[in-house]
Design a protein around this nucleic acid. Structure first.
Lengths: 235, 235
DNA sequence: CAGTGGTCTAGACCACCTA
DNA sequence: AGGTGGTCTAGACCACTGC
C-alpha cells in the first residue's frame, strides 16, 4: 500500500476544485490558515502544496492580497518533468506513437559518459510522436539495457515509457534539459511531414531516478510551427 | 536600511564557498542540521536556502546520502529569471548592447492586452545584444510609459534594464516565457550577421513586478547556432 | 484595522542510505 | 545503528494589502 504524501493529497484536492471550476479563474482561494483548518493539516503542508501549484502556473500568490486561480493565457506551462504522453493530455490533445526503431546497441562515447556506462549496451528507441494523429516530434531515446527487458520493451509501441519505468521502480525524478533551434534534416523532414530545412526545436534530456542514477537520455526534434515551450520563471 | 532575508544570507555564504572552491564539485556539504547549528538558524531556513541552490543547479540532494556540489556539465542552467546582462556574465561572457531604436508608441492590441493598458503609450526599445562583441540576439522590449522617464531611459545604451527598474521600485519578480524555433527574417539576419532563413530561437517574455503588475513585454530572437536554453526539471 | 502571504523557530517522525 | 534529507506540526512575527 503506497503512502501518499499529505501535501500531495491536498494539492490534488485543490487541483480538482480548479479543474471542476468550483473555483473559477480569477477567483480567490481560501487563505492558507483557513485551508489548514479545513484539511486538518499544518500551514506548512498547505504551503508545500501551493508551491507546486504556483510552479505549475495554476495559481498566483500575492502577499497581503491572497491567492487566486490563474487563467491560463499562453499555452500549457512546463515547469515540471512530464512525459510526451502526459504533456499532450494536459494540452487537451490525444497522443499516439509510431515506433521506427528499437535496437540494442553500444552508444557513442558522449552518450555512454552521460549515462555513466562503460561498454554496456543500451536500448535505442526511435519513435514518431503524434498529437491528434499528426506528427509533432521525433524522439530518440537511450535506456540502459539493465533497466528494461525485452518483454517490457514490447509495450512501448503505445504506452508511456515513464509509466513503465515507474512500475519497475526506476521512475524519473529529475532531468536536465536543453533546447536549441535547428533546421530539419531531410530524414527528419520526411518523418515530420514538413520540408527540409524548416525550423525545428531540438531538445536533449538526461533524466535521473530518485537515486541520482541516469535512467534515460533523449533527443527530441519538434516541428517549429507546431510546438512551443513555456516556463514560469521566478526572480 | 534594507533588511536581507536570513535564508538569502545563508544562500550567499554557501554560494561563496562553492565559488571559492572551498567545497569542490562532487564534495559533500555539511548536513542540514549541522548547517543550522553553524549559521545559528533553524533548519527550515537552511532548507529554503538550499532549495534555491538546487533549483539553480548548484547542488544536488539525495535522501539518506546527503548534499553534494554539482559540477556544471551542460551550459549554464536557467531556472530563475535573469536579465541578458546577468545571464551572459554567468556564462563568463562580456555583454554589450547596441541600441537600434527607442521610441514612444501605442502598441498593437495584443501587446496592450498583455500589459493591461488601454490606450497609453509605451517605450519601444530595440537592442542588439552581444556577447564578447558578437551579436547574439535582438531584443524588442515594451515598457509601460509610466514606468520610465526620458532621462532614465537614456542610460539604457549600456546598462541593465532590470537594474534600472529595480532602482525605480518596480523590479521584475516573475515572468512567463515561451520559446519557439523559427527562421531568421532578412532584417534579423542582417542584424545578427547570419544568412536569411537560418534557424533562430524566438522568446516571448512577460514580466511582472512584486504586485503582479506587468512591467515589460519582450520578444527576443537568438542565433540558433550560438545559443541554447537549459532547464532543470523536477518530477 | 483585520487579513493575507512571507519568513522563521524548535521541535518531531519517517524513509532511505551507508556501514 | 547512526546519519541523511523529506515531511509535518504548532506555533510566532513581519510586510503588505485593502477597507
Amino acid at each position: 500500500m503506497a503512502r501518499i504524501k499529505l501535501h500531495e493529497q491536498v494539492r490534488r484536492r485543490i487541483e480538482r476544485l480548479i479543474a471542476d471550476q468550483a473555483i473559477k479563474p480569477g477567483a480567490q482561494i481560501p487563505a492558507e490558515t483557513d485551508l489548514a483548518g479545513e484539511f486538518n493539516v499544518s500551514r506548512t503542508t498547505i504551503r508545500n502544496a501551493l508551491n507546486v501549484l504556483e510552479q505549475e502556473g495554476k495559481i498566483e500568490r500575492t502577499r497581503g492580497r491572497g491567492t487566486v486561480v490563474r487563467q491560463p493565457r499562453l499555452g500549457q506551462l512546463l515547469g515540471r518533468l512530464l512525459s510526451f504522453t502526459e504533456e499532450m493530455k494536459l494540452r487537451g490533445l490525444t497522443p499516439s506513437n509510431r515506433l521506427i526503431e528499437m535496437t540494442q546497441t553500444v552508444p557513442s562515447t558522449p552518450i555512454r559518459t552521460l549515462l555513466r556506462l562503460d561498454s554496456e549496451s543500451v536500448w535505442r528507441i526511435r519513435r514518431v510522436r503524434c498529437a491528434n494523429g499528426e506528427p509533432i516530434a521525433i524522439e530518440t531515446c537511450y535506456i540502459p539495457w539493465s533497466a528494461l527487458n525485452e518483454q517490457d520493451a514490447e509495450n512501448l509501441g503505445n504506452g508511456s515509457l515513464y509509466e513503465l519505468l515507474g512500475r519497475l521502480g526506476r521512475a524519473p525524478d529529475r532531468s536536465e534539459q536543453s533546447a536549441q533551434a535547428a533546421s530539419a534534416t531531410p530524414e527528419e523532414a520526411a518523418l515530420l511531414n514538413i520540408e527540409s530545412n524548416r525550423p525545428v526545436l531540438r531538445f536533449e534530456r538526461l533524466s535521473f531516478d530518485a537515486n541520482g542514477e541516469p535512467i534515460e537520455f533523449v533527443t527530441s526534434t519538434y516541428r517549429g510551427d507546431k510546438y512551443s515551450f513555456h516556463v514560469l520563471l521566478k526572480r
